[in-house]
Design a protein around this nucleic acid. Structure first.
Lengths: 147, 147
DNA sequence: CTAATCCCTATTATCCCGGTCGGATGAATC
DNA sequence: GATTCATCCGACCGGGATAATAGGGATTAG
């Protein structure tokens, strides 16, 4: 039930883009170095994000990636869903999650509700919020607690 | 990010036991047949649930499994955690989920909060509630909507 | 034209899940 | 006490997905 690295890598890249908003496109290699990620692997993920309309790519020299929308208009839910597939805990009703009879199975509801809970959480979180938090963390280091 | 079948199989078995509470132990084969699950596979899962103290096993003839506690005192969170591992979305801070510096990484908090949300949801759901819902569903079939 | 960068398609390695099998252990029945 | 029944335990295996790597093609700036 862990998230795959696709999501976490992707989120790290997207956060990086959110922090660099307004500074022109950022190269994959640059992101990869800053985040210590395998560059060629990240490349594939960026293509997925582009196809999903979350980022714009500019090719050629001085190219790179930039967010396609304002950070406040991109939710974590979107990003994760692109890289991880639908935000459901089981694939009802055809899958093994329930008995195959959703109308009669209390567990189907359980899994669906859990998925909705998670989705709601991720939908409520935007790149803008995350970037803000990240800036706060970077600016005010552990010193805060050592007074 | 899907749940493995271990959890779903296990939950189906546990719900079956909850519905059969007070009727003596239930055999694995019996559960497997009713839920259309591979019996020998389910067997392994039941052993895990027993070692976790969620069910009691009686061996030999007329043996089988029964809940170790009252249905209202067994949460979905416990069951899932036994079969699926800790209810976290990433394994911070050593894993690839965050940058390796939880104090400086906004994403660590994100993943942890998401995990807590999910955990809270599952902790709030007991076998008693599920059994009740299941009974309601079985009792009042689709006929309700065809008046 | 040339360098830089994204784009795309294999290919590989590794791990975990889902499942099977055979036999050992322990309990009930006769 | 022998037999039967059911849980227990470990070993094994195939498939599929994940996480990479590699190489070449397309596109743009200078």
């Amino acid at each position: 039930m862990k998230l795959s690295t696709r999501s976490t890598y992707g989120m790290r890249a997207m956060l990086e883009l959110a922090l660099a908003v307004g500074q022109g496109p950022v190269m994959v290699r640059e992101i990869a170095e800053r985040q210590r990620l395998p560059a060629t692997y990240l490349e594939q993920l960026m293509v997925l994000l582009r196809k999903a309309g979350l980022v714009n790519a500019t090719r050629g020299a001085h190219g790179g990636y930039a967010l396609a929308r304002e950070p406040r208009d991109i939710t974590v839910a979107e990003i994760v869903e692109v890289l991880e597939g639908p935000l459901d805990l089981v694939e009802c009703p055809s899958g093994a999650g329930c008995c195959g009879q959703p109308e009669v199975c209390a567990l189907c509801d359980l899994w669906n509700d859990a998925g909705k809970t998670l989705t709601a959480f991720f939908q409520g979180m935007t790149l803008a919020t995350l970037a803000e938090r990240q800036r706060a963390k970077s600016a005010a280091p552990v010193l805060m607690y050592s007074i």
